[in-house]
Design a protein around this nucleic acid. Sequence first.
DNA 1: ATTGACATATAGCTATTAGTATATTATCCT
DNA 2: AGGATAATATACTAATAGCTATATGTCAAT
Lengths: 100, 100
Amino acid sequence: MKRALLRRIDPALLSRAAEIIKMLGHPERLKIVEVLERGEATVSDIQDAIGIPQAIVSQHLARMRGCNIVAAQRDGSYVRYRVIEPKVHHVLNCIRECDA
Amino acid sequence: MKRALLRRIDPALLSRAAEIIKMLGHPERLKIVEVLERGEATVSDIQDAIGIPQAIVSQHLARMRGCNIVAAQRDGSYVRYRVIEPKVHHVLNCIRECDA
DNA sequence: ATTGACATATAGCTATTAGTATATTATCCT
DNA sequence: AGGATAATATACTAATAGCTATATGTCAAT
């Protein structure tokens, strides 16, 4: 495994990193971004995929949108969400690698 | 970069993963574990290293201890903390790799 | 054993976050 | 257009986190 040799995280980026992983630090949000990782999805797509109440999905999405982790785009009565923060993929892959 | 090919995160581990990154999702806690990553440290070591009030350091440590991310060991009037959750290193390395 | 100084922990208030119930917005049909 | 239905968003309450001020614990010296 590649080691970064304990180099200090760039202070300028640390705060944003904390913000991102804070947002991902919730089981439901983690599941949501896992779905979105595969491509755009509507609120109801996500709801169906992970089986939690719509209002919860919507709120989590709103919060993640608030810190520019996902973006929304209305499409008729649907709203399509997608991941816009590239680090999200890194973090998810990190988690996958962890549970070897 | 090695890709995990969007394999679903093991549901049994996802919850713990969320808990861990939630704990790391705070700038001060991130700095704290960065210090601890290099080895054991006392509360005051950490305080000196990152320059925030002792009470804050102590509280963050208590919280991380509460979910078994760090462990404490009294040594006279000092208390030495250390990381006991291996995934912490993975996450920190992930963050370092992110900000290429 | 008491005092003083230092190291760490917690109490108490405020602010965020999570979840349930309700509201809004959009589409389709008559 | 108006009303029904489906999709999404928000309001409100309960729990949790964060910060400042204060307390507890430990050691050393007298």
